[in-house]
Design a protein around this nucleic acid. Structure first.
Length: 580
RNA sequence: UGGGGUGUCGCCAAGUGGUAAGGCACAAGGUUUUGAUCCUUGCAUGCGUUGGUUCGAAUCCAGCCACCCCAGCCA
């Protein structure tokens, strides 16, 4: 019986919530039981460096690193960099940074598929020599015609039966740069009539006279994904090659390549070559991609949003990228918990954004220090306090976690409260401040509104309230005061700007095929900046946190990119749950 | 219409022949100096559908239906 409840530990030491079984964990447990790879578990996370990582990648990262850690195994980071056209060093750097931030440490050095280009070339020669690959002069268009269709078999390329010598010569000349881009390609010789189109003599190498971010101008032929991925896995001694469902049809090709090559030569070229581990070929297993409603997770569209300035960049706090979510204030632990909570299965599914929000709130509630910040201030004059009154109140940083300590909050005669916490015509059940009514200033006294001052236009100017001096730290005598509102000293408070974020799209499925231009369903109010907020001074003290729960408002974090010495900008990470 | 997959509560998801876990959401109570948190309770006589096998089926078999993926020298 396998243990269905366990906990995984990440490099930052945080223990994530309990895990439940899934088909991959079950398979690995089985493989271990059967001693399939000598009991080894070795996974890899293989991004192509052609964009920033997003929440969907987080699922794959958590799965690959998680499953390795749970089984005392290893997980490599490998850049699948076989198509230099779309790739760049900027993406490589950002991806490494994102993975570290998420809390995972890859095994050894960062790998690149391009590290193996020479070895891959040698394997290709081996395929040619065993008559399993040939150089084909068909153009891309011609090749498409020869490939047939979903319902019709393909036809053999006229170049399919070239001699081994000719193929060897041609392939070598491909490498030396004799031919122009697209002039010819190296193809596997499998079966043009296969019902699986991936097996209809797939291209192994194409010619691209283009510089590569890792190998420079060393190569002008580049191996394709299908040819490269299985061999890179094999070279690295990967045991479980986890990928998403759309690659399911590629698995027969993955296996064909590995089984058509001499296993001894693969083993000899692998990281396991000089160890006494028995060499076993990797196996591909597919799982469903993570999709989230109200969210775009397609790299192409995310890139488009950045390039058309729909957002300010890959790290715009509204973006579902790891960089964006980090800047928004989502924590790595919350994201890990979320990925665990959605599970790993094979059915196409769309997870409700509410699940992500729950994970964020859950983590932030436990770990964020509290502070008070008034978003839309209105002045309250505490009439029975002397003008120069200055009282330092001590308040807990967290209502349940004493270890988080306490802070000092100054109370003066003039304070501000949120405009929405005062109502002249309250609806049934309103329990904040009303004319003639009482409310508690959080952590301080109960006050009573005795006067509402308005200007000639009838706009509220300020409120005059009396303080019940006998209510500090105790309930008032003989009556119940239900409401508690947050406040900040007008003179001692710190001005700041706050950015409120909402979902980027108005529709539940912005990736729907019916939507031609995503700009049609953009939420106009996805970013609202408010400028006259006032926070208690403790947030600027030496050693202060950069993220808080602003009580009764939500979780906020300092935006270091937008803040300057004379302007503080906080991002609203997420609101508090509001069941009112 | 070829091939490969998937269908369990509004959303995820466990379950592998012994009588439907869990989480989110939702609802109702309780505690509370955050309308937060926390606690308690409720929430699938039914597992796409129709048949069959069996003492017994979400689990096995057959048919049907729906949805997803594949015809890049992208990954």
């Amino acid at each position: 019986m396998t243990d269905q409840k366990s906990a995984s530990t990440t490099v930052d030491g945080a223990v994530d919530s309990s895990t439940s079984s899934n088909f991959i964990r079950n398979k690995i447990a089985d493989d271990i039981k059967q001693n399939k790879h000598g009991g080894r578990v070795h996974t890899r996370f293989p991004p192509e460096p052609n964009g920033y990582l997003h929440i969907g990648h987080a699922k794959s990262i958590c799965l690959n690193f998680g499953v390795a850690a749970e089984n005392s195994g290893l997980c490599n980071l490998r850049f699948d960099d076989t198509n230099p056209e779309k790739e760049s060093q900027e993406y490589v750097d950002a991806i490494k940074d994102n993975i570290s931030w998420l809390g995972f440490q890859w095994n050894g050095d960062v790998r690149y598929s391009s590290n193996y280009f020479e070895q891959l070339y040698a394997f290709a020669v081996q395929l040619i020599e065993s008559g399993k690959a040939y150089v084909c002069d068909l153009s891309a268009n011609e090749a498409r015609e020869y490939r047939g269709s979903l319902t019709q078999p393909g036809r053999n390329s006229p170049h399919r039966d070239r001699s081994i010598e000719e193929n060897r010569d041609l392939f070598e000349r491909m490498r030396t740069g004799e031919f122009a881009d697209g002039h010819c390609s190296l193809r596997a010789k499998i079966d043009m009539a296969s019902p699986n189109i991936n097996m209809r003599d797939p291209v192994l190498y194409r010619i691209r006279h283009i510089e590569h971010h890792q190998t420079g101008t060393q190569w002008c032929i580049y191996p394709t994904y299908d040819y490269t991925h299985c061999l890179s896995d094999a070279i690295e001694g990967i045991t479980h090659s986890l990928c998403t469902l759309e690659f399911e049809d590629h698995r027969p090709l993955y296996d064909w390549i590995l089984h058509t090559l001499e296993i001894a030569s693969i083993a000899g070229a692998s990281d396991l070559a000089d160890t006494d581990s028995e060499y076993v070929l990797p196996e591909q297993t597919e799982f469903a991609k993570l999709k989230l409603n109200h969210t775009i997770v397609g790299k192409r569209k995310l890139k488009e949003m950045v390039e058309t300035n729909v957002v300010t960049g890959w790290d715009d706090p509204r973006m579902p990228t790891l960089a964006g979510m980090r800047r928004r204030g989502f924590t790595a632990a919350a994201l890990r918990n979320f990925c665990e909570s959605v599970g790993v299965a094979r059915s196409d599914s769309i997870v409700d954004l509410g699940m992500l929000e729950h994970a964020i709130r859950d983590d932030l509630d436990k770990n964020s220090p509290r502070a008070m910040c008034v978003l839309n201030p209105v002045t309250v004059v505490l009439t029975n306090l002397p003008d120069e009154h200055l009282q330092i109140l001590s308040m807990a940083n967290h209502p349940k976690v004493d270890e988080m300590g306490r802070r000092s909050v100054p109370l003066t005669k003039r304070v501000v409260i949120d405009r929405s916490d005062f109502e002249e015509l309250p609806v049934q059940g309103f329990k904040r401040l009303i004319a003639g009514g009482e409310v508690r200033l959080r952590g301080a006294y109960v006050i009573k509104c005795i006067d509402v001052i308005k200007d000639d236009a009838g706009e509220l100017v300020e409120l005059h309230c009396s303080v019940d001096l006998d209510t500090l730290g105790k309930k008032p005598e003989g009556r119940k005061v239900k409401g508690v509102i947050h406040w900040v000293s007008e003179a001692k408070g710190i001005p700041l700007n706050v950015r409120l974020y909402d979902r980027l799209f108005t529709v539940e499925n912005p990736e729907s095929k019916d939507i031609e231009d995503i700009r049609e369903c953009l939420n106009e109010d996805s970013l609202i900046e408010i400028t006259s907020c006032i926070a208690e001074p403790s947030i600027m003290e030496e050693g202060a946190s950069s993220s808080y729960q602003f009580e009764r408002e939500g979780y906020y974090c300092l935006d270091e990119k937008e803040s300057s010495e004379n302007k503080l900008v906080f991002n609203r990470t997420i609101t508090l749950r509001d069941s009112w």
